[in-house]
Design a protein around this nucleic acid. Sequence first.
RNA 1: GGCGCCGUAGGCAAGUGGCUAAGCCAGCUGAUUGCAAAUCAGCCACCCCCGGUUCGAGUCCGGGCGGCGCCUCCA
Length: 598
Amino acid sequence: MSTTTPQRTAKPTAPPVTSIRVYNTLSRTKEPLATVKPGQVGIYLCGPTVYDKAHMGHMVGPVIFDTIKRYLTYSGYKVTWVVNITDVDDKLIRKSGERGISMAALAEEMTQDYLSNLAGMGVDQIDRMPKATECMGDIIKFVEALIARGFAYESAGDVYFDVAKDSGYGKLTNRTLDALQGEGGDTAARKRSPHDFALWKRTKPGEPSWDSPWGAGRPGWHIECSAMSKSILGETFDIHGGGLDLIFPHHENEIAQSECCHGKPMAKYWMHNGLLKRSAEAGKIGGRSERDAAPTQPNGVMAEAGGYDPNAADDKESRSKGAGGLAELLAQQGGERIRFFLLRTHYRSTVLFSDEAIAEAATGLDSFYRLFKRIERITGRSFYDLPTADRTSGCLEKANHPTLKQVQEARERFLAAMDDDFNTGGAIGELFELARAINKLIDDEKLEDGQASDPARHATLLQAACTLRELSATLGLFLQPVVRAAGADDKHVAGVMQLILELRAAARAKKDFATADKIRAALGTAGVALTDRAGETEWDASAAPAGGPLAELMKLVVELRAAARAAKDFATADQIRAGLTTAGITLADRAGETEWTI
RNA sequence: GGCGCCGUAGGCAAGUGGCUAAGCCAGCUGAUUGCAAAUCAGCCACCCCCGGUUCGAGUCCGGGCGGCGCCUCCA
C-alpha cells in the first residue's frame, strides 16, 4: 500500500468502517476501499446469459457478492447492487430456434430458473436486475455517443468499436493489441481491426431485432453492461464484479466503451471470483470442454502412462454430470450447505466441487445446527430469534467472563479476516472457534443439567450466541431454520415401522399384550393402521396427518425404549437404537428425555 | 508464444516477515455416557525444490519443477 491511513487513528469502527481492503484486478493489489460517494457503494455484477439452465458456476458470484453486500451494510455502508440479465444473444437465438419458442419465452423460462436458484442459495440482496432487452434506448444512445466521439464506426449495418482509437485498451489484462491472437471471426471483413468488437449487429432474417439509426439489429455482448451500469450506478461507480473468465474480453471491452465514452474511469475496483471445477485436472464447470463434450467420451486420446484407471475417472465425472441440474442439487442438499461450502474457500480461489466435498462441509455445518438446538433447550430461545447487531455496537458487554473474552477475540479476528478482501474462509474458521467456546461454556457451567429455568445463568451464553448470530448473518448463514423437503421422510418411516413391528412381534411372542396393544393404539393416533396376518403384520399410513407419521412414531419408539431401560431390559433398548440407526435416525439420551435426529 | 493465478498435514483450507503455522473432515487417545450419539480435552505439518534479502521468511526477490486460467462463447 502506498497510502498511509491516518483515518484509522480515531474511532476504530465508526461507520462506515474504513479498514476494508479489496483486491483490484486492475492494479493487481489489495487497495483500501475508498468509495466514490462517502458511505455509499455501487456494485455491478455481470449476471448470466439466460439461454440454458443455471449451473453451480453461476452461483459463485451471486453468493460472494450477496455476502459482500451484507458485510458492507453491516459495516455502515449504503449499498446498491445490480445484476444484469442478458436476454438477447446468439445462443439465445439458436436455442429458442431449436425449441421452436420465442427468444423472449426462452429467456423468461431460464431467468425464472436462475432466480429460483438464487433464492435457494439465500441470495436476496440484489437491488436491481435490468434486462438488456428493456434497456434498448440506453444502449442505442451509448453507441451513438461512441460514434459521435470517433471511437466507433458503422459497417454494413453493424457498428464496431475501434480499438485502435483507444490508447488505454488492454489495461485490465495487461496486454497490447499486438499480443492478441484472434483472427476477428467471420465478421473480420467488415472490421478495421480483427480486435474490433461489435456494439450493434444487424439483424438476419427471422431474428429478433430492434430499430436503430443503423437499421434493424440487436446489441453486441458488452455494450449492455456499459449502458445499464451507467444509467443505474453512474459513469463511475465503485465495484464491478464477475467471474475470472469474464476479464477478457468482456470487461476489457466494457472499460474501453465506457471510458472512451465518458473520459473517466468506469469502476474503481474490479473484483473477479474464481471458477468451479470438478477435479484438479478437469476444466471449469460449464466450460468449453463440458459444453463440447460428446455424450460418451469427453476425453481425448491422452496416453495414460501411470497406473490410473481412466474408466474410473470417467465414471466419476459422468456420475456427477448425470446427478441432475442445479435445482435438483439444491433441493437435495439444501442451499445453505452449498453456500457454506462455497464460502469456506476464498472467493478468488478455484473451488473443487463434488458431492464428497459438499458432504464434508455439511458435517461441519451440522455441528452448528446441533449447537443451536442445544442453546434452545437451555434458554428456551431460538437461535434464529436472537437479535442481530451492527458492527459498531455488537452484542457484547464488557468482557467480564473468560468465555466472553474469547468471543471478543474471535469476533475481532473475524472482522479482520473479512476486512481483508472478504476472507470468508478465515471468517468461518472463527465461527467454529465461537461454537467451541459456547459448547465449552455449556459443559463447564453445566447449563444443560435440567435446571434451565434460571435466566441469570444464561446471560453469558446468550451474549456469546448473539455474537455468533451477528457474525454469521453477515455471511448470509443461519438466517432462518433449515426446512427439510417433504417426502424425504418416507424411507425413514418405513425403517421405523419395521422396527416397531419387530418390537410388537417380540412383545406378542412373550405374551406381553399390554405392550403390543399400546403399540397398536399409539400407531392409531399417528394415523397408521395395523392388520395382523398369518406370519406378518401389514401397515397402512394413509390416514397420517400432513407432516407424515414420523414424529408420532418416534414418540412411541422413544417411549418404548424408555420403558425397556427402566426395566433394565438393555437388550431391547439397544435393539431399538440399532434399528433406528439402520433407518437413518440417531438417538441422543439427555437428562430426562431422548432426542432423535435424521 | 503473450498475460495472469496457484503449490501449507491423509483430504479440504486460513495465514497482512517475528510468541506454540487458524479451522473443517478423516484417524488416534482421554473425560463424559448402561451402550451409543453429541460435547469437551489432547495427538496428528521439516509450509514443492534451490538460491538471495533480513537479526528473523510459509509470508519478500530470483531461478527451477508441477498444476490451472485467459488470449474464441463462458459465472
